[in-house]
Simulated assay, not measured.
Amino acid sequence: MMKSFASVLILFLFQGAIAQNTNTCSCCSENHLAFDFWVGEWTVTNANDSPAGENRIIKEEQGCVLRENWTSAKQGYTGTSINFYNRINQQWEQLWVDSSGAFLKLKGNRVGDTMVMSSEEFTKDGKTLKNRITWFKNEDGTVRQLWEVLNGDDVVSVLFDGLYRRK
């Protein structure tokens, strides 16, 4: 019986190895590639053209994950995010964590030449708010990132408005 179990296990592992080598790309659908315009090494400036920082976005896990590594122009502040297309809920998701311990969870999708992701609602000072970050794919190859705080459909504040230029 043990010999039979070992044979089945070996066969299962061998078939898995073959499947991995002959499998088509798991994350190559149009939806999985929708945020690829953000991949690259970037110098980022604020809306007033002052330095904001540098950002490196790379594809990992066989193209299934975009990892962001942010270094702010403000010394000592860094952050990282994991971004992926969740085929179960058919949305992009982002989890951002920074060197201050703050985190942000976003969900959304690409609409035309923009990726729009929003947080769940939260309450602050008696107001129901949510974060919305929009990445704009510009014709000249730059990317604009706009982070707004909304109360319903109204923009309460802009937390970041940056322009990404390829290094």
Rank of each mutant, 00 (worst) to 15 (best):
S29Q: 10
V44D: 00
T114D: 03
D113I: 00
N48M: 01
G53T: 02
N138K: 13
Q20D: 14
T128P: 10
S26D: 13
T24R: 10
V158K: 13
I88N: 11
N48W: 01
K167T: 11
D154N: 15
Q91C: 03
G112D: 10
L106G: 01
N83H: 07
R144A: 10
N21S: 11
V155T: 15
E30D: 06
T45S: 12
I18V: 15
V143A: 13
L129H: 09
E148P: 09
A17Q: 08
W96G: 01
R110M: 07
G112P: 00
L95D: 03
Y77P: 02
F14T: 14
N109H: 06
Q91N: 14
V8M: 14
W96Q: 04
Q75V: 11
D49H: 09
N48Q: 04
N86S: 13
K167W: 07
L11P: 03
W147F: 14
L104M: 09
C64T: 04
D153P: 00
G112R: 02
L129Q: 08
G112T: 01
S157P: 00
S26H: 11
S4E: 15
T142G: 07
C27L: 05
K127F: 08
S81D: 06
N21K: 10
G108V: 06
W70R: 00
G79T: 03
N55F: 02
M115F: 04
Q62L: 09
S157Y: 06
D125Q: 12
N31D: 13
N69L: 09
T114W: 00
